[in-house]
Amino acid sequence: MDLELSGKIVCITGASEGIGLACARVFASEGAHVIICARRPDKLEQAVKETICSNGATIEGFQADVTKVSDIEALIAHINTRYGRLDVLVNNAGTGIYKGFADVTDQELLDGMSINFFAQFRVSQRALPLLKRSAFPSIINISGRTALRGNFPPGSSCTGPAKAAEVRFSTDLATELAEFGIRVNCVIPGVVKSEERLRLWEAQANGGAWKAEAIDKRDALESVAVPKGQRWGEPQDIAHVVAFFASTRAIYVNGAALTVDGGPHTKSYVSQLYA
């Protein structure tokens, strides 16, 4: 199926690895011009080098920390100078912290809202003038299953509300921007086997220090967390949904929040670590 994404200008935040990078590769395979941004220049360079472009596609990295307004504005200015418009914005940057409610620090609370909800709001707001210049503009916000389901143990009172705000924000934005032809949808992934994310969760469960033996336990935990014959997600599983939302095939999809988690029966990897 031709998603008609060839020549589209696509910006993806938090895209040096995991879901963001998988999205970049899918868009590049469809012939889009992709700008990926992340904080670490070495990871960005590696991501660009390892992404195969076809059908006239291009990919470039732009170093930006989306918790900083100055970095966001620099990213948007770069896209404006280089392309003059933006067709697809994928707000993927985000993270999570899992710990008991009483143990969450004020800084962790602020950081959680900043990298998740605040970043999506600010990037979308600054990108709005460029999206208005597109013939078929789209915003896809990436949330997380803690927006809908608790994660205890250890606790998701910090991350869950930030993720839930992303879902609610997407609904409001879809309504408000409809007059400009800008569609806004939200993807809510379940457990996705991104190496960096798995290591983060494993380190948190181990008091902050990651140990290599955690890798040996992953398959065992997955076997009890999902029904026989199924698995936790891979980054590309989410990326294909994102590309569909951005395409002309989804012209009648606006304001949707789609959970992509293998079904309500799947258990959280985080809670399995604390079981």
Rank of each mutant, 00 (worst) to 15 (best):
Ala239Lys: 05
Glu213Pro: 04
Leu109Tyr: 09
Thr259Asn: 01
Ile182Asn: 00
Ser157Leu: 13
His240Asn: 12
Gln63Phe: 14
Ala147Met: 01
Arg82Gly: 05
Phe62Trp: 05
Thr95Phe: 10
Gly61Ile: 08
Val10Gln: 06
Lys193Glu: 15
Gln120Thr: 08
Ala214Trp: 04
Tyr252Leu: 00
Val90Ala: 07
Leu5Glu: 01
Gln46Ile: 07
Tyr98Ala: 11
Trp210Thr: 08
Ile79Thr: 03
Leu75Ile: 10
Val192Trp: 10
Leu128Cys: 03
Thr81Gly: 07
Thr51Asn: 11
Val224Trp: 03
Trp201Met: 10
Arg145Met: 08
Ile97Trp: 04
Ser16Thr: 15
Trp232Met: 08
Val123His: 08
Leu198Thr: 06
Val10Met: 07
Lys228Asn: 14
Gly233Asp: 13
Gly207His: 02
Val90Tyr: 12
Trp232Asp: 11
Lys68Cys: 13
Arg122Met: 03
Ala57Thr: 10
Asn116Glu: 12
Arg231Gly: 12
Gly263Leu: 12
Ala147Trp: 01
Tyr98Asp: 08
Pro129Thr: 01
Pro129Gln: 06
Val48Glu: 11
Arg149His: 06
Val184Leu: 01
Val242Glu: 11
Cys37Trp: 02
Leu198Lys: 02
Gln107Met: 05
Asp216Gln: 07
Ala162Ile: 03
Glu222Val: 14
Pro137Phe: 01
Lys8Met: 12
Cys11Trp: 03
Ile97Cys: 08
Ser124Glu: 06
Gly56Thr: 03
Gln107Arg: 09
Val34Asn: 11
Lys99Tyr: 05
Val69Phe: 11
Leu177Cys: 00
Leu258Cys: 05
Ile182Ser: 00
Cys186Leu: 04
Ala256Gln: 05
Ala164Arg: 06
Arg40Asp: 15
Gly94Trp: 15
Arg25Asp: 01
Glu45Phe: 12
Ile36Ala: 04
Asn80Arg: 06
Tyr274Ile: 07
Asp172Leu: 14
Ile52Leu: 14
Gln46His: 13
Arg199Cys: 10
Phe101Tyr: 14
Gly112Gln: 06
Leu198Gln: 04
Thr175Ser: 00
Gln230Thr: 15
